[in-house]
């Protein structure tokens, strides 16, 4: 008997939780981007698990597009990190408080 889908779904939920916690607590913009990747991958795992259990390739096609969007997002995001680092010499998001009222 194969592993039930719910096991993978629970692991994906835990993985998303770890990524979300890291995103909320870490200061470095680079680490926050890595946490976004972890969360995206947790969702990808959910998609693939459902594609497997529901016998539907649509879930895998969705993961394909998530991959493309994640690649684009990382490219632009790291470009922003580089641009901010030029000004601030730091990747800490606490430094970006110019709009504080």
């Amino acid at each position: 008997m194969t592993i039930p889908a719910s096991w993978y779904l629970i692991v994906a939920a835990l993985l998303f939780g770890v990524g979300a916690f890291g995103f909320l607590t870490r200061r470095s913009a680079l680490i926050m981007f890595m946490c976004i990747e972890i969360m995206l991958n947790a969702v990808n795992l959910t998609f693939v698990t459902f594609a497997h259990s529901l016998k539907d390739i649509g879930g895998q096609a969705a993961v394909f597009f998530v991959l493309v969007v994640a690649a684009a997002e990382v490219t632009v995001g790291l470009g922003i990190v580089v641009a901010v680092f030029r000004r601030r010499s730091s990747t800490a998001v606490d430094e970006l408080s110019e709009l504080k009222g």
Binding site: A71, A72, T75, V76, L78, G79, I80, V82
Partner: peptide, 12 residues
């Protein structure tokens, strides 16, 4: 992807 590449170049 084209937009992302152009945007990254302009930003960085």
């Amino acid at each position: 992807l084209i937009i992302a590449v152009v945007g990254a170049v302009i930003l960085a």
